[in-house]
Amino acid sequence: MDSEVDTYLSNATSWKTELTELRRIVLSCNLSEEFKWRIPVYCHQNANVVSICALKDSCVLSFFKGALLKDAQNILSKPGENTRSARVIRFSNVGEIIDIEPVLIEYIKEAVAVEESGLKFDFKKEAEVDLPAEVQAVFDDNSELKQAFDGLTPGRQRAYAL
């Protein structure tokens, strides 16, 4: 267990009980615990698998490659409209966590299996950018700007398009 995670949990002003319960469940799956990006992150062989964090209206168990999970219980959701690979399970009370603990363990084990298999999310497939008509019109009139745009990474192009 990571002492920075202990501090994170002791300083939590909301969702402390829920986060502590999620931590217990995740650690029971033999993942290593680290503190990254100001949240608890759980890894398998140095690969990020899941994280937990408190939000304003809920706390979440977040799967880094959640889009690759089967989601047999249909409980995963995108954390944001433009999220590509991550998926979360939201909780508003500790009872919800306890009620589905076996399912959470199953999902965590599946996420570990995804890591072990080397399966990767196809960001290139998701990276194709639909440019707004206004942007395309500017590119049609300014080939230098279009060339500069094409030189950006796919992620940066997507961010500008959004």
Rank of each mutant, 00 (worst) to 15 (best):
W37N: 12
F63T: 00
T83Y: 09
A159N: 13
R158F: 15
C53L: 13
K78Q: 14
L145C: 04
I97Y: 00
V114E: 02
R38C: 09
N30S: 15
E106F: 08
V88D: 00
L68K: 02
K120P: 02
V41F: 06
S62G: 05
E4L: 15
N82I: 13
V88P: 01
T17N: 10
A159F: 15
W15D: 07
A137G: 10
I98F: 03
A137L: 13
I108P: 05
H44A: 07
K120M: 07
G66V: 01
N11L: 11
V94K: 13
I105V: 15
V41C: 09
N11A: 09
N30F: 12
I39M: 13
N46E: 14
R23N: 02
W15L: 05
G151A: 13
I105Q: 07
A161I: 09
E33S: 05
I108E: 05
R24Y: 06
D99H: 15
L27Q: 11
E18H: 04
C59G: 10
L27M: 15
M1I: 12
E144L: 14
V135K: 03
F123W: 08
E33F: 01
S62I: 03
S117G: 01
K65L: 09
F121G: 05
N142K: 11
K125G: 02
I97M: 03
V94I: 13
